[in-house]
């Protein structure tokens, strides 16, 4: 199990335990984290799983692929630490990961 914290735009933190191998989007949807929609089911087609990655975690994630970078270009409120969290596959090395949710998904 991997522990992961989602912090809402209003600042509310929720810690969930997710199975290794799931994506951070799947874990969020599974635990009803409001603010992550995941409309396309995780195939980089909707951009509704946008998160801002906390602090140093940004560099510890595998960098985004071309398709994800393309899609991020269309996101409102995108920042250098923006990711589509359906592309963050949870493993033991990500235990303790912290993700910030944008004000809303569009």
């Amino acid at each position: 199990m991997v522990k992961i914290t989602y912090i809402s735009h209003a600042g509310e933190a929720r810690l969930v335990e997710a199975a290794s191998g799931q994506s951070a989007m799947e874990a969020a949807v599974h635990h009803n984290i409001a603010g992550i929609d995941g409309d396309c089911g995780g195939v980089i087609a909707c951009g509704t799983c946008h998160v801002h990655v906390d602090g140093t975690w940004t560099d510890r994630l595998a960098p985004p692929g071309e398709k994800e970078r393309d899609m991020l270009a269309y996101i409102d409120n995108a920042r250098p630490n923006s990711r589509l969290c359906c592309q963050i596959v949870l493993g033991e090395e990500l235990d303790g990961l912290v993700l910030h949710l944008p004000i809303a998904q569009h």
Binding site: D39, G41, G47, T48, M71
Partner: peptide, 12 residues
């Protein structure tokens, strides 16, 4: 929410 009515990709 997992439906096609809004399309997907860059023209979504």
């Amino acid at each position: 929410r997992h439906h096609l009515s809004f399309g997907f990709g860059i023209h979504r």
